[in-house]
């Protein structure tokens, strides 16, 4: 979106469920390997811990996009954690729309055992979606 500092590198916060990633992504180092975008990786015990205010604070304080990486519904060890995270993303999208902002600044992906490369690809896709439209 035009009102984000388009000259700067797009900043994406990736909040990921420790259950949703592969061994290779257990540290947050992979974030440094993302080229062309600035990734801040935050590992969580479960995606259900991601509350709406938490997501909005990132957006308000400079992140261009926020992506939650959660387990698929069936793979969620807390059963409804990832479904909840999805509903929250839907809610935040509605809020962004209500202030005339791009709802694609936030998103969620759900898949088990994501590798560092996959995480980077996800972050890039979110950055693109946030900047389009």
């Amino acid at each position: 979106m035009s009102n984000q500092q388009s000259t700067d590198v797009t900043k994406v916060v990736v909040l990921y469920c420790q259950q949703a990633i592969s061994e290779g992504a257990k540290s947050t180092d992979w974030a440094q390997d993302a080229e062309g975008i600035n990734v801040q990786a935050i590992m969580l015990p479960c995606s259900s811990k991601v509350e709406v205010p938490y997501i909005l604070r990132f957006l308000e304080s400079g992140a261009d996009a926020v992506e939650i990486v959660a387990c698929p519904e069936k793979g969620c060890s807390f059963l409804i954690g990832s479904r909840r995270a999805e509903k929250r993303i839907e809610y935040v999208r509605g809020l962004l729309e209500s202030i005339g902002d791009n709802p694609q600044r936030v998103g969620i992906s759900r898949k088990l055992s994501q590798t560092p490369d996959e995480l980077i690809a996800i972050a890039k896709a979110r950055a693109e979606a946030a900047n389009s439209n």
């Binding site: 205010p53 909005l56 604070r57 809020l95 202030i99």
Partner: peptide, 14 residues
């Protein structure tokens, strides 16, 4: 409150 505060900030900034 903690949801509306950042949302209003963003909207006002816009």
């Amino acid at each position: 409150v903690e949801t509306l505060a950042p949302l209003l900030s963003m909207a006002l900034k816009k």
